[in-house]
Every structure is written in C-alpha cells, then in structure tokens.
Design a protein around this nucleic acid. Structure first.
Lengths: 221, 221
DNA sequence: AAATGTGAACGCGTTCACAGCC
DNA sequence: GGCTGTGAACGCGTTCACATTT
C-alpha cells in the first residue's frame, strides 16, 4: 500500500470532520487574494484552536513552513485531495416528500462537487413527477445508477418507517455512503458508512439548553 | 437551587445529545403498547450500547427497577421533562432562500413541539411574500417576537455571508439558542448556544470514506 | 434470577508546551 | 524571531464488570 493511502486511512474521524471547515476557510482566504496564513489565523477563521488545527493538518503531512505559515493554495489543494474531492460525487436522493423536494432544489450541493444525478421514490404515484427539473425515478433504477453513472452516495429523505427499506435498497445496489435525514436508526453491513442529520434532535438539544438558562434565571436572577 | 435543577445542569453534553433518540424509541414502544423495556432492548432500538444507555439515564436519576427494567411511559415522561419539552418552543426561521423555504414547509418541527411562529428575511423585496402560509416579516420584528411571543430559538438559513448579521440580530433581540444551517462560523457572546448543521460538510465526510474504500479496493482487491 | 446503577479501567481527542526549523 | 510539528499531559466519554436491589 502506498504511503499516501496509509496516511489517509489513519486520519482520525474527528479530524476528518473538521477538514471541510478548513477547506472552506482557505477558499475564502484565496478569494480575498491572501496567499499565506498562520495556524492562528486559519484556526480563527475555522472556529477552532490553533493547536487543534496544527494537529489535524499534521495527519495529512507536513505542508506548512516553520516561521512562516501555510501556503493557502497548496493547503487547500492537499485537503481537497485528502477528502477525495478532486472527483465529482454523484448523489441520489431517496424520498420525495417535503424534505426530499427541498434537498433536490437546494443548490449548495452542486457548489461543492456533488451532482444530484437522480431523485427516487418508492411510491409509484410519485414516480414520474417532475421535481427540481428532474423526473422522479423508481427504486428499481438504483442498480443501473450505480453501475452506469457511478452513484456513490445516497441521501435518505423518506419518512422514518421507510428509511430502513430505502437504505437496504441503496446498499443492495452497491452504495456505500449514506446520509440519513430520517429520524430513525438504520442498520447497515460493515463497510457502509451512515451519517445522520436530524433536525428535530437538534432543536430538542437547543430546548434543553434554553430550559437550563430559564432555570438559572429563576434561581439566580 | 433545587436538586432537580442541579442534576439537570450536570448532564454531560454527549448524553443530552442522545436523549432525543431514547425518547423517540420510547414513544415508538409506547405506540406498540409495550409497557416495560430492559436497557438492552431500549439500547438496541436507539442504536447504542446498553451500558451507555444506563449511564446516560443515571444522570437523570434512578427511574429503572433492578431485575425488571424501565417503565416506558414513566421514562418517556422523565426524558421529556429533562429536555424541557413539556412546554412549546416558539421558533423563527431567518432567511427565505431555498433552504429557508424548505424548512418553513417541513412538518417535522411541529410534530415535536416546535412552533414556527415567524419567517423573516433581511431583504425588503422578500418581506411580505407568502411562504408556507405565513407572511415573511422584516428583521425589525424580532424584538417584539421575543417579548410578546416568547421566541426562544432562531434558525439561520441565510447565505453564509449573511449568517453573522442574522445571528447578531437574533441575539440582540434576546434569542439564546440558534440552529445554524449556513456554512459559516458564527461568533456569539457567552450564554448563547449555537448548533450547526452543514449538509455539504456531511457529504464531504462521506466522500472521504467513499474514496478510502475505493483506494482499499485498488490496493487489496 | 434478572437487570439496574456505578466505580474503575480504558481509549480517544484536545490542549499544553517546547524542540526543531525557516 | 516566529511559527510549525509533536511528544506528553490532561480530561472527557465509553466500556467493563460487578455489587446491589427487586
């Protein structure tokens, strides 16, 4: 195995999760014509500590210059490469309810190299409808999307009771990366990565903190 | 200070983040007419280990029965109370672009006790438009929403360059809990809690894993 | 007998602090 | 002199394993 692949594999998950933030900050700096940054500056732009930034970057390799800082273009390119963003990633969205339609129309994906190549739904009454300029396709189309179009990432936007089935279909077709918006726990075989985004959970966590503040105010005004 | 308030404050953040998942699993069990669960069963339903579940619940108090398990209704009620979900939480969404409109139309919020009481936008051309049955209001309405309607949670769905301003307006009006969908780091004073949801970041993390798999397959087919 | 609640062990992630290099 | 890269220290969160309780 090559050294690059080895290094790449050993990046801790927590670091990987911060790399997109660093990349965004670097892109913004580059747009402002800034050619070089210190870890202190970049960390501030990304909202982390400089020590954490340096430790994170050290997992990618040694791309800084002591006494100087990091070359903005170079570092952006290294992170892009480490994240695997040099290629386009075809994405399919499953579930054309409220949220699915919203995601289909959301332009933020395309901006970062994610092409929504298909919208799918398990309900035959929805299949064929036009959403965000695409015709909604049946789940049976999934295998062909994987083999012919290189589909690699599935987004689940079904109601919670359909999430497991949708995921099973995606995995059976060969998709190994899933972003789950349904408020449900889904089981997958080894080798498949699932990330979950749950809007209600986020609000519930905020409610907890809001309540905590309210309690404090009553107790110690 | 009451014991309940003290205990509530000491729940570790990581545990708080899992409570909504437990609550969801319990609600589902209750709907199926199940009155009692063991930590093993509930943990499986929530997708965590039984040891972690028990440790998490121990922060709330001692609501299980040794040798028996947990009463579903009782535990659901305790978690509801710990999270502060006995009351309704008024929410405002700022930024009526693509994502903001989608969130405004999303019904998942209301189902869990979050009332979207206002949609706002900083652009006068958007103010007055009707979105999801509500008239879009100007940012100047924020202070009145806080004092008169008890607005407590703000959702930022602006483009990234408007996020800090939107957040500043929310905080100035008295909002202490913010859910940020904009791909930007925002600064807030102490006492204000911000949670961030970034769809592109999630996809980028998935891309990393997808690429890792691809590399492995080339190296060790 | 069965399952909770919890101290102790463990491991990961973050921060510290400084050696090393420009 | 200044800033990176990193071993060491630290702290938090998870898991283990069992004493405790019904």
């Amino acid at each position: 195995m090559s050294a690059a692949a080895t290094a790449r594999r050993e990046i801790p998950e927590a670091s990987v999760a911060r790399l997109p933030g660093y990349l965004r900050a670097l892109t913004s700096l580059a747009r402002d014509g800034i050619a070089s940054v210190s870890s202190e500056e970049l960390a501030a732009a990304a909202g982390v500590s400089s020590a954490m930034l340096r430790k994170d970057l050290s997992h990618l390799g040694s791309y800084g210059v002591r006494g100087v800082g990091y070359d903005v273009e170079r570092l952006a390119s290294e992170i892009t490469s480490a994240l695997g963003l040099t290629q386009d990633w075809p994405v399919a969205i499953v579930g054309m309810g409220n949220l699915g339609r919203a995601l289909a129309a959301y332009r933020g994906f395309a901006e970062r190299g994610f092409r929504v190549i298909a919208l799918l739904d398990g309900d035959p009454r929805v299949v064929g409808e036009e959403v965000a300029g695409q015709r909604v396709r049946p789940m049976a189309d999934l295998p062909a999307l994987v083999t012919e179009e290189g589909l690699a990432i599935g987004v689940i936007a079904t109601p919670s009771d359909g999430a497991q089935q949708a995921c099973d279909d995606l995995v059976a077709a060969g998709v190994r990366s899933v972003l789950n918006f349904a408020p449900a726990v889904i089981a997958v075989p080894d080798g498949v990565v699932v990330r979950k985004v749950d809007l209600s959970t986020e609000l519930q966590i905020l409610a907890f903190h809001g309540q905590r503040v309210a309690v404090e105010e009553v107790v110690a005004p």
